[in-house]
């Protein structure tokens, strides 16, 4: 005669299927939200690393005192800037954008240059892309001082204004994703604990009988805890499978830029795999713990 797994008929719970489904959905949502948070992190990393130590120097087409500069004047100014920058040992790379590069930059707005009549007469600024060995505010202000001596109209843009806004947005979305994950986990835990409490109320006469026979709180609680762990584990496995299918579809199918290009492949995949394992595990353990605490509270109200 084999030993019954439960003294209490917990496995005869008809609402177990609903609880498994709910846990599965919540696990899926939590994983999807975490994946989104990781993607945002990767995106922020991609943007910030792409523009790190990079700055653009603009030679405006319009003089501050009035009047337009022609292409020849802009070219002359660019050469003077180039000469000045080359004397700086911190400067790693200088690229003066030629007409073709400027046309390529403007193509999304103005269309291909060959389709545009009189494009050569457009008052386009001169752009110089500079890569520094390292950068900080002192280096930047010193560089700006030197460039101002060449021409007061020269503008230095280290992209920080634009970049910090984007990164701030990413971080805000990440915080929202983390909060959402916590809400999802809390909801699941409350649902599991509530289901255990309802089950306990239904089985109260049986629980009282065990209690009267000398079953300690741990003996009774362990059965509910194990039941909650099994149900949430089943749900978590469903959620993991669903999330794995969707995330793999996104990763290999659409090939999101931040995931594919920015971070080392194994690093991102490793994080995703770790998350796929740890998040559902944490959810199951917290659910079992919540069931334990709830059952103990009810038991302690008994004589």
């Amino acid at each position: 005669m084999s030993r019954a797994h439960y003294d209490l008929p917990l496995q005869q719970d008809r609402s177990a299927g609903f609880l498994i489904l709910l846990t599965g959905l919540m696990t899926f949502l939590a994983l999807a939200t975490c994946a989104a948070a990781l993607s945002l992190n990767a995106l922020a990393f991609y943007w910030s690393s792409g523009l790190e130590n990079n700055l653009s120097i603009e030679i405006p087409a319009e003089r501050s005192k009035g009047g337009l500069r022609d292409a020849e004047e802009i070219q002359l100014l660019a050469e003077r800037v180039d000469k000045a920058l080359k004397q700086d040992t911190n400067v790693r790379e200088i690229e003066i954008l030629d007409q073709k590069a400027m046309n390529d930059l403007l193509a999304p707005w103005l269309g291909p240059q060959q389709n545009l009549a009189g494009a050569e007469d457009l008052p386009l600024p001169g752009l110089i892309s500079v890569t520094l060995g390292h950068t900080d505010t002192d280096i930047l202000s010193s560089l700006q001082e030197r460039l101002k001596k060449i021409d007061a109209d020269l503008r230095v843009d280290d992209h920080q204004e634009w970049l910090s806004g984007i990164i701030r947005l990413c971080r805000s979305l990440q915080v929202a994703a983390v909060v959402s994950t916590l809400v999802i986990i809390s909801t699941t835990v409350i649902a599991v604990a509530g289901a255990m409490r309802a089950r306990m109320e239904i089985l109260r006469p049986d629980v009282e009988l065990l209690h009267l026979m000398g079953a300690g709180d741990n003996y009774i609680t362990a059965q509910f805890q194990r039941h909650a762990l099994i149900l949430s584990s089943k749900g978590a496995i469903l959620g993991i499978l669903a999330a794995a299918v969707v995330l793999c579809g996104l990763y290999f199918g659409i090939g999101t830029i931040p995931l594919a290009d920015s971070m080392p492949e194994h690093g991102m995949l490793g994080m995703l795999l770790l998350m796929l394992l740890l998040l559902p595990l944490a959810l199951c353990l917290i659910s079992a713990l919540a069931a334990r605490i709830m059952v103990l509270r009810v038991l302690r109200a008994m004589v």
């Binding site: 209690h211 009267l212 026979m213 000398g214 079953a215 300690g216 709180d217 302690r300 004589v303």
Partner: peptide
């Protein structure tokens, strides 16, 4: 509570 459980046993 543990003592009560032992008594009941």
């Amino acid at each position: 509570r543990p003592q009560l459980a032992q008594m009941r046993q």
